[in-house]
C-alpha cells in the first residue's frame, strides 16, 4: 500500500534490455525508451506533415510550420542573422524537451526531463558548445570578458572569481530549473491523486484540484521548454557577439 502510493516511485528507472559494454552499464531503460519515442514522434511529425508540400497548409502542416517559424523567430530576435547555422541545434533541443515534457503528461508514461542526469547532460552540452564557439570565434580575447569594461584594476582579484562563478553557474541553473519544475509538478500530481480514493465522496475536491493542476502542468511543460530554448539562444548570442 505504501509502495503503491509513493509519489517518487514514478521516477524510478527500470532496465528493459540489459547491455553491458566493457563493465559500463549501458542498458536500455524506460528513460531511453521514452527518449526514442519522443525522437520518433518529432521526426514523424516533421516528415509526414510536410510531405504534401501544400501551398495552403493543412492542419498538420500548419503545426509543423508554426513550430519552425516560432523557433526561427526566437533565434532571429535574440541572435540575429549570425544565428542561422545554429537553427538545427536549437530546434532539436526545443522539440526534444517539449516532447519529453508533454509525453510525460500522458498517464503511465515516464518523464525523462525529470532526471537531473538528462537535463544536466543537455545543459553541459550547450555550455561546452557555447564556450568552444566563443573561443574559436574570438580567440584569447574571450578571456578578457571576465573583467568588466571600465572597472578599476584594483577590483580585479575580487571581480574575476565572481564573473567566473557567474559563468559556471549557467549550466547548473539551466538544468536544475527544468529538472526541479518537472519533478515537483509530477510529484504534486501523484500526491493529489493519492488523496482521491481514501476520501470517498469528498474525493471530488482533489479531483477538481487535479484537473486544475494538470492544466498548469501543461502550461509549465511548454514554458520550461521555451525557457530552456531561449536561454540557449541567449548563450549563443553571447558567444557569437560577445557584446
Amino acid at each position: 500500500m505504501a509502495e503503491a502510493h509513493n509519489p517518487l516511485a514514478q521516477f524510478e528507472i527500470k532496465t528493459l534490455i540489459p547491455i553491458h559494454i566493457g563493465g559500463v552499464d549501458a542498458s536500455f531503460t524506460n528513460s531511453a525508451a521514452f527518449m526514442v519515442a519522443s525522437v520518433v514522434c518529432v521526426s514523424a511529425l516533421m516528415i509526414l506533415s510536410v510531405r504534401s508540400r501544400a501551398l495552403v497548409p493543412g492542419r498538420w502542416q500548419l503545426l509543423a510550420e508554426l513550430a519552425y517559424s516560432f523557433i526561427a523567430k526566437m533565434l532571429t530576435d535574440t541572435v540575429g542573422k549570425e544565428g542561422r547555422p545554429y537553427f538545427p541545434l536549437v530546434f532539436s533541443i526545443f522539440m526534444f524537451v517539449l516532447f519529453g515534457n508533454m509525453l510525460g503528461m500522458l498517464p503511465y508514461t515516464f518523464t525523462y526531463t525529470s532526471h537531473l542526469a538528462v537535463t544536466f547532460a543537455m545543459a553541459a552540452f550547450v555550455f561546452v558548445l557555447v564556450t568552444v564557439v566563443a573561443i574559436a570565434k574570438h580567440g584569447m580575447k574571450f578571456f578578457s570578458f571576465f573583467l568588466p569594461h571600465g572597472v578599476p584594476i584594483a577590483m580585479a582579484p575580487l571581480l574575476i572569481p565572481i564573473e567566473i562563478i557567474s559563468y559556471l553557474s549557467r549550466p547548473v541553473s539551466l538544468s536544475v530549473r527544468l529538472f526541479a519544475n518537472m519533478m515537483a509538478g509530477h510529484t504534486l500530481l501523484k500526491v493529489l491523486g493519492g488523496f482521491v480514493l481514501p476520501l470517498g465522496i469528498f474525493g471530488v475536491v482533489p479531483v477538481l484540484g487535479l484537473v486544475a493542476v494538470s492544466g498548469l502542468e501543461l502550461l509549465i511543460a511548454f514554458l520550461q521548454a521555451y525557457i530552456f530554448t531561449i536561454l540557449t539562444c541567449i548563450y549563443i548570442n553571447d558567444a557569437v557577439h560577445l557584446h
Binding site: 570578458f145 569594461h149 565572481i162 553557474s169 548570442n237 553571447d238 557577439h241 560577445l242 557584446h243
Partner: peptide
C-alpha cells in the same frame, strides 16, 4: 560568499534586461 555575489549579479542583470553577458567588453 563569492557565489552569493555572483548570483546577485546574475539576478540584477536579468531584471535589468542586460542578458547574461553584461561583463563583456563593448565593441
Amino acid at each position: 560568499l563569492l557565489g552569493f555575489a555572483a548570483g546577485m549579479l546574475n539576478i540584477f542583470r536579468i531584471t535589468r534586461g542586460y542578458g547574461y553577458a553584461a561583463g563583456y567588453r563593448a565593441q
